[in-house]
C-alpha cells in the first residue's frame, strides 16, 4: 500500500487512506480513500446505508475504524479521543440533533466554545452571541434547547459546531426537512463559513443545496467509493445516476 500519509501536501487538510469499517460480519466501509483540500467544500453523496455517517463517526472519533488511516494535516487521528479531535479543529453536526436539552441555546454554544475552541468563558460570550446571530438563533439565545423546533435544533447543531471554531466542519444532513427558501439561506451561510477559511465536508441528500456550494463531490455506495471529482462530472457519471438516482444509462 502506498504511504499516502508521508510528506503530505500542505494543501491537504484531511486525508483518509484505505479506511474500512465492519460491524461483525457486516462490512459498512471498504477501502475508502480521499483527500480534503484546505478551504474547499467536499460534498458526500450516497444512498441510505452507503456508510456516509459511519465515515463521519470515524473522522470525529465516535467509532474506531477496522482498518486504514485518517490524518488531519500531518497528525494521525487514530488513538485520539473525540474531545481531542474537536480541540484539534474538527467540528461536527449530527444527523439527528443532539442538543443539551436542559441548557439554553446560548449555553449549548458556550460548551463548544470553551472546551472545544479553548476560549475563556468571558471571551466566549460575545463570540457565541455572534454565532447565534449568524445562525438566526439570537432571539432564542435563552430558550431551553429541549423546547426548540426541529429546524431550530438543526440550526443549533450548526451553530454549536461553529462555536468550537473548527478548521474542518463535518455537516451531516443539515438541510433535511428545510423549505426551499431555508435551504437557500443555509447555502449562503455555508458559503460564508467557507469564505472564512473553514474547510467543509457535507453529507446531504438535498442535491440542489449541495450542488450550489460543493467544490467537489464524493459518492459512496455499499461502503465503497464509486466516484469523486467535479460536481457536474460526478452527477453525469452513469454509475452515480444508476445507484443514486435510479436512472439506468
Amino acid at each position: 500500500m502506498l504511504d499516502r500519509g508521508a510528506g503530505m501536501d500542505r494543501d491537504i487538510l484531511l486525508r483518509a487512506t484505505d479506511v474500512s469499517k465492519s460491524f461483525g460480519a457486516v462490512r459498512v466501509l471498504h477501502g475508502v480513500s480521499f483527500d480534503v483540500h484546505r478551504g474547499e467544500v467536499l460534498g458526500i453523496l450516497g444512498p441510505n446505508g452507503a456508510g456516509k455517517t459511519t465515515l463521519f463517526n470515524m473522522i470525529s472519533g465516535d467509532i474506531k475504524p477496522s482498518g486504514g488511516d485518517i490524518r488531519l494535516g500531518e497528525q494521525r487521528l487514530s488513538g485520539e479521543p473525540p474531545f481531542r479531535r474537536c480541540q484539534m479543529g474538527i467540528g461536527r453536526t449530527y444527523q439527528i440533533p443532539r442538543p443539551y436539552s436542559g441548557m439554553s441555546t446560548f449555553e449549548n454554544l458556550l460548551v463548544a466554545s470553551t472546551f472545544g475552541g479553548g476560549k475563556s468563558e468571558a471571551e466566549s460570550y460575545a463570540f457565541c452571541a455572534r454565532v447565534l446571530q449568524d445562525c438566526e438563533l439570537a432571539d432564542k439565545a435563552n430558550t431551553r434547547a429541549g423546547s426548540l423546533t426541529l429546524l431550530d435544533r438543526k440550526r443549533l447543531e450548526l451553530a454549536r459546531a461553529l462555536a468550537s471554531d473548527p478548521k474542518l466542519l463535518l455537516l451531516d444532513e443539515i438541510a433535511g426537512g428545510l423549505t426551499e427558501e431555508e435551504s437557500k439561506q443555509l447555502v449562503a451561510l455555508v458559503r460564508r463559513i467557507r469564505d472564512r477559511g473553514v474547510t467543509i465536508v457535507w453529507i446531504e441528500h438535498v442535491l440542489h443545496a449541495l450542488m450550489a456550494v460543493a467544490d467537489r463531490l464524493l459518492v459512496l455506495n455499499f461502503g465503497e467509493k464509486i466516484a469523486e471529482g467535479d460536481p457536474q462530472e460526478v452527477i453525469a457519471n452513469p454509475e452515480v445516476k444508476r445507484v443514486y438516482m435510479g436512472i439506468e444509462a
Binding site: S60, G61, D62, P81, P82, F83, R85, C86, Q87, R92, Y94, R98, P99, Y100, S101, G102, M103, E107, N108, L110, V111, A112, T114, F115, G116, G117, G118, E121, R160, S164
Partner: peptide, 25 residues
C-alpha cells in the same frame, strides 16, 4: 463554573459533549 457547564452537557448528551471538546471520562 465552566466545568459545571460541561457536567450538565454530559448529563444531557455525553456523546455530543465529547464531540464538543469535553473530556467526559
Amino acid at each position: 463554573s465552566r466545568y459545571g457547564l460541561a457536567l450538565i452537557a454530559i448529563r444531557d448528551n455525553p456523546v455530543a459533549a465529547a464531540s464538543q471538546g469535553v473530556n467526559v471520562g
